[in-house]
Amino acid sequence: MSLLEVEDLTVRFGDAVVVDRLSFSVEAGETLAIVGESGCGKSMTALALTRLVAPPGRIGGRVRLDGLDLTGLPEARMRAVRGDRIGIVFQDPMSALNPVLTVGEQVAEAVRAHSPLGARAARARAAELLDLVHIPDAHRRLDDHPHRFSGGMRQRVAIAIAIAANPALLIADEPTTALDVTIQAQILCLLDELRRDLGMGLILITHDLGVVAETADRVLVMYAGRKVEEQDTPGLFAAPLHPYTRRLMGAKPRLTLGEPPPRQRLQEIPGLVPLPGAIPPGCAFAPRCADADAGCAAVPPLQRHGRAAVACHKVDLAARAPRQIPRWTDRSQWRAAE
């Protein structure tokens, strides 16, 4: 049994389907990246997992954490699950912290919300947590207010708060989008380290394929609220299956070290990401897809093969040469996959 099992997760706002029958699972100690462009439903998925979707949004489907069905849980118990079993880190480190409380108070409060520690013990634990997220001089900085911290440091504090209760699952929604690259590298490294050391499952929501490549074990690509592809990370980058994934990779200029490559036109994806409520019938990507034909007027079923899945009429997963999809643990496979 996986740590997190999601089955047919659906989020609707009136007639607009923002997340459409999404199924996936996350193992303990594994990083799953959910990738997509804005409006694809990836952030709404994060909110739906923790049942934080604001009305009039409605959540359907099943979410099971360690066998516990979260969808049927009364709100009071769900509140205990949030923070205690699931930690969440949001994009904007500026607004995630309360400006009038000291950093120590905020971390200690998160500690005490889920354990019966006294004030002094909570403070000690807060210092420990800040140390764990590599804030230099953690003890001395407990009494500082958030405005004394840089953006990267604030995101570290937000992470410390999210892991205060030792959650089994950490959801990070674009945790580095607001940060500079050198700070982004630090934060990604920290998340990876915490996942490994604490054995957490990590769901990393991002629009950046580079971030995915460097941090994720498995990748789920979303388009217009649906899962269009799922693969192990090396497999995805070696052989993306869905035309959308392929296009997305071609659209982003790649940084090359050494001799810069000759200039080429970037591959454009024509048209726009469809808005929820105006999603084309059939394959949602068909209007922008170069390979689309009359057959794409029907919604493509999700084909599975091993740990890979794709939803495209033009790809026959089973007919492809049976391919060994390398596992992370087998580093000798890394080059071979390319």
Binding site: L209, G210, A213, E214, R254
Partner: peptide, 9 residues
């Protein structure tokens, strides 16, 4: 520091 589409990194 730039994340690259290179999983072996």
């Amino acid at each position: 520091a730039v994340p690259r589409m290179a999983p072996e990194r």
